[in-house]
């Protein structure tokens, strides 16, 4: 009547998103969404001077952080959508535009992680993800606010700053944050066990 031992081992290969993966991603992103909401106010004040672009990377931070924590396909997109969702809920003036931006930015980051087969969690990959997310937002800007009609020096400065900011804030800072969280030990909850962990069950030293 019992459950054979073998059945337990089949579970090693589980890769899909579990409920806990999604919940952690969404909750972390919602927290970011709240930060964004207040960030948005600061940000708008800086807008006329374009200084806001240097902080733009904050908007992609949820995507890279969620990936660095969960390390599975799909979380970057979910994270950006979730963060946008909470902003919409709070009655942000940007409305549904945010969901659109979230989707494209998340997709940008996701592509970079996918290019490294979701196995690379280094600063460089995270920075690249932040930069590509910035490119994603740039594409939407064309449609949304005719940015190609800006003076070209400004156009270059604006998006140069944005990409840099994406790499620094969404890349470097989020890697630091993920490492700080790792040190607290909570991320152990999120990591799947390796086959080495299974082998340790039969380790003669324990016998």
């Amino acid at each position: 009547m019992g459950v054979p031992v073998k059945e337990n081992l089949e579970l090693q290969s589980r890769k899909g998103l579990r409920v806990s993966d999604i919940l952690v991603t969404v909750l972390v992103s919602l927290v970011f969404g709240i930060v964004y909401h207040f960030w948005g106010s600061v940000y708008s004040l800086l807008k006329p001077f374009q200084a806001d672009e240097l902080l733009y990377g904050m908007w992609f931070a949820a995507a890279t952080l969620a990936f660095l924590l969960i390390r599975k396909p799909g979380v970057a997109i979910i994270a950006e959508l979730a963060a946008a969702h909470v902003e919409v809920l709070f009655g942000s003036g940007w409305g549904l535009t945010l969901l659109m931006y979230g989707l494209i930015q998340g997709l940008g980051a996701e592509l970079v992680f996918a290019a490294f087969r979701y196995r690379n969690y280094s600063v460089w990959v995270a920075a690249a993800a932040g930069a590509v997310a910035a490119l994603g937002s740039m594409v939407l800007d064309f449609y949304y606010s005719y940015t190609d009609d800006l003076e070209s020096w400004l156009f270059i400065a604006k998006y140069g700053m944005r990409i840099l900011s994406g790499a620094v804030i969404a890349g470097l800072l989020m890697v630091l944050l993920a490492k700080a969280l790792e040190r607290t030990g909570v991320t152990a909850l999120l990591r799947p066990a390796s086959s080495k962990d299974y082998e340790a069950l039969d380790d003669p030293r324990h016998g």
Partner: peptide, 8 residues
């Protein structure tokens, strides 16, 4: 950290 634990 608290959020992750709680969500889990």
């Amino acid at each position: 950290a608290q959020s992750i634990r709680r969500a889990h």
